[in-house]
Design a protein around this nucleic acid. Sequence first.
DNA 1: TGCCGCGATTAACATACGTTAACCGGCCCT
DNA 2: AGGGCCGGTTAACGTATGTTAATCGCGGCA
Lengths: 254, 254
Amino acid sequence: MNLEPTTSRLLLRLAGFQPLSAEEAEALEHAAGPVRLHRPHETLIVEGEGAAHVGLLLSGFAYAARMLPDGRRQIVSYLIPGDLCDPRLLLLPTAAHTVSTLTAANIALFSCETLLDLVERHPRLGRALCWLALQEELVAREWLVNIGQRTALERLAHLLCEVFTRMQAVQLTDGGRCELPLTQVELADTLALSTVHINRTLQELRRQHLVSLSGGMLEIHDLPALKSVAMFSGDYLHPVRERPERARRRLAPS
Amino acid sequence: MNLEPTTSRLLLRLAGFQPLSAEEAEALEHAAGPVRLHRPHETLIVEGEGAAHVGLLLSGFAYAARMLPDGRRQIVSYLIPGDLCDPRLLLLPTAAHTVSTLTAANIALFSCETLLDLVERHPRLGRALCWLALQEELVAREWLVNIGQRTALERLAHLLCEVFTRMQAVQLTDGGRCELPLTQVELADTLALSTVHINRTLQELRRQHLVSLSGGMLEIHDLPALKSVAMFSGDYLHPVRERPERARRRLAPS
DNA sequence: TGCCGCGATTAACATACGTTAACCGGCCCT
DNA sequence: AGGGCCGGTTAACGTATGTTAATCGCGGCA
């Protein structure tokens, strides 16, 4: 049902850094291994274990989380189609987070060895992957600000803005709507709130005609207003936009 | 007053990934530009601006923070000697966080261009820097868990464990003591608590004979107990320990 | 010597959010 | 068709932490 090349959404992401040459894109596509179909709520990577492959999410949703010994759980990122899972395994021996699917998901496997070789032969590709990792870090830091400084309403609004923007970047939105198959429990473990309060807050957002989320579908009614209550600036999601040379010139050492 | 090579503490860090060859270390040392002495509470990098240099903190302390339009502030990381500031500028056009000194600080400048060239000629060095960035991401994610899931007491205990462990790694501890020049306001903006509550919590930690922090000095009285209340596992700070080959072997695709 | 200002401390009071628990509705399975 | 389960919803009540504001102590400076 999907005739596009395996790496099309990933290329869409990487192009934000630097469009890849046809040859590089080809090489990347060629490095793709078998595609696996995973079921909902399946665990792909366990915190503390290693892996010989990194996955590329082709369809479906997943998340990464850390658990405390007493059962508390913090979701630290969401994976949407086009995201790698978990590129850190290229350089780190063991995974820092447990990665699980939210929905059924198609995942293409890339062997770490193949990928490391590839990167050696195509340094620009290596830099692009590194850039992708940095972007993930920016998102993590933004979540830190979100949980640390924003109220429940702002937090939720911000998360929804972010996911929607990321979905747009990989062409998975339809007007103001996109899929978002999260339960209120998952939202709670993401935003460090209780499910009850997530429920209250979700209703408040709907009451203000900003967004609604139900049946796994996110529907944005007033994006500018939503961004405004969230104090959302998508900058951290588009770290490259203007010409790098222009931006770089400032702040030379006196 | 400091006769060591500029990069000695950085090399200490990078060795955690893969000890560098004498030649690589030499090349890195050689790439170092001028050293600047900064005063306390000076801003080095402004959120949203670019820079042509990355700094290496030789002595002193600094922090990175994001501010919300209404003035709320979240500190997202601390920089201690041996840390780079801000390596992301090698690949991103603008800084995502404002970096400021906490104390007087010596900082060696590396030109981005020089560093990018260097990395091209020494791919292992590039990988080491990338590893360093990944480690920072792990720390950020741990902070997310910290703020999201832990109570005030656990949070503070965890932060102190982390900083102490990092200080150990660059040989800046003396038994159970190390410098830590943070005000309670800064701690509050780090842990997403009020200064009043930081004060209460700090006293509780002291009352339990776990740690004390005053006059810019951190004194750990019972590290095992402190780690235990913090649920601290230093794993995320030492992503490489066992042989990578061993760890990698698990989880091959069936 | 005394003033000033910052950071720490304390107390009284306020609140955003958590907890518990009951109920509801849809979906799956038999 | 019935039961059970999961996710969502609601209400009553509890609490960890925030807010405000006053006080204190100390180092710097005139």
